[in-house]
Design a protein around this nucleic acid. Structure first.
Lengths: 232, 232
DNA sequence: AACCTTGCTGGAACGCCGTTCCAGTGTGCT
DNA sequence: AGCACACTGGAACGGCGTTCCAGCAAGGTT
């Protein structure tokens, strides 16, 4: 749009401000400095302008965060969302979201905050199509798809929280898990009997596999609805 | 603790500031004015004091929010967490959290934010015990319990977000659902085929029942793990 | 060539926030 | 009587999101 009137000049400015450039810079800021690092002042400095200029392209911080989340989620959904079977496709979609949150922890918080909006709908749609392909009866479509979505969102929020707190005291993921695991082991034996008993499973687990195990659990439940017994 | 030295005076002041009173006031503020309404200034005014005094009893806003969440969740877990069968007990625990979030939407956001901390652990423990009672093999305890927990957290976050946005434009829950449903119906038929097809199910659903249906789905999946086929 | 409109810029300023600082106060102990 | 000290509350600090507005460079109009 616009650009190149009829004369030669290819660009009239080194790099004019634009919504796209702003969102891009916001994502970089969020990735490097965390959710608290996204500031209109910091953003303005990075874009070599003032805070006021940003408001001409974006209505406020909420919209900016929304646009950033949308951009990341759209990318994640555009990438591999397929699989040989619907079951694999569900796992693939879920993993796509999981990995996106792993790479950009702030979208975990953001997805859990926003009401039924664009990025959420994208994920819901992709999950739902695979639910459909699984042969789930129509009456159960909504339940099955939103159960999957809500589980994904729950894990996402939790991962985002963990990323925040393990970054704050800059430890590695493994160290962090170890600390939490020993903390669990030291809980009151009566009040937290179960939690203590699985502290070991927390220490050794792999986040990604654990996440998939949860997806599989839900898929197994869904398979029960379809009436067709899933092969193990 | 403390109180009544040895002389008579039952209270040396009309009502001295205390951590308990502060948390209580914070909860009231959060319930009536929303998450944005909790301010040290507003809190100080409600307690007829200055912001500085509060910091003597509480280290900061994070701890205050944590304590408020803890108080509400502990109450919810203390109430009916039982049932004739482990399955009913799981539903009861989950519903307890669901209803608590319904009554205090802000804890939905808060639970999704905090890393593995006290209120979360309480819920995890209660869910886990019932998982144990279901006869799930030990190796799957962690997976089963955290799948349930993450689903509950996901729904909680979503409910909190919905409560925020339907309160902002003060509509009733039913009106809000209707609006979202028609919005879904007007989505692009190609890109959002599935979402459009379940717009009707969204409009008519009951939040609580839908939530339980998700729990049942996961329970069905868990039943598959135990090797015992669950009776429908 | 001179003018004006208009899309866009960026810095200053406003009000509110969480938090810190500190002079003051009332109580119990010696 | 005097002291120590737990506790109070108001003032002040730095930083935030947001608004306001004087300025500017390009295009179109005359």
């Amino acid at each position: 749009m616009a650009a190149a009137t009829r004369k030669s000049r290819p660009e009239r400015r080194e790099e004019p401000l634009s919504r796209e450039r702003i969102v891009e810079a916001a994502i970089e800021l969020l990735d490097t400095a965390g959710e608290a690092g996204l500031t209109f002042r910091a953003l303005a400095q990075r874009l070599a302008t003032g805070p006021g200029a940003i408001y001409w392209h974006v209505t406020g911080k909420d919209e900016l965060l929304g646009a950033a989340t949308e951009a990341v989620v759209a990318d994640a959904m555009a990438a591999g969302v397929t699989g040989p079977t619907p079951r694999d496709a569900v796992r693939s979609v879920a993993l796509g979201v999981f990995d996106a949150i792993d790479a950009h922890p702030w979208i975990g918080t953001q997805l859990a905050r926003a009401p039924a909006q664009s990025p959420l709908l994208r994920i819901f749609e992709h999950l739902g199509r695979q639910v459909q392909a699984l042969g789930v009866p129509h009456a159960a479509h909504f339940t099955a798809a939103s159960t999957l979505l809500n589980y994904v969102l729950g894990v996402g929020g939790q991962n985002a929280a963990n990323a925040r707190s393990s970054q704050r005291q800059d430890t590695t993921r493994a160290e962090f898990l170890g600390e939490v695991s020993t903390a669990w082991s030291n809980l009151d034996p009566e009040e937290y009997a179960f939690t203590r008993s699985v502290a070991g499973q927390l220490r050794d687990h792999d986040d990604r596999e654990e996440f998939l195990a949860g997806i599989d659990l839900i898929l197994a439940g869904i398979a029960g609805i379809t009436g067709v017994t899933a092969r193990p």
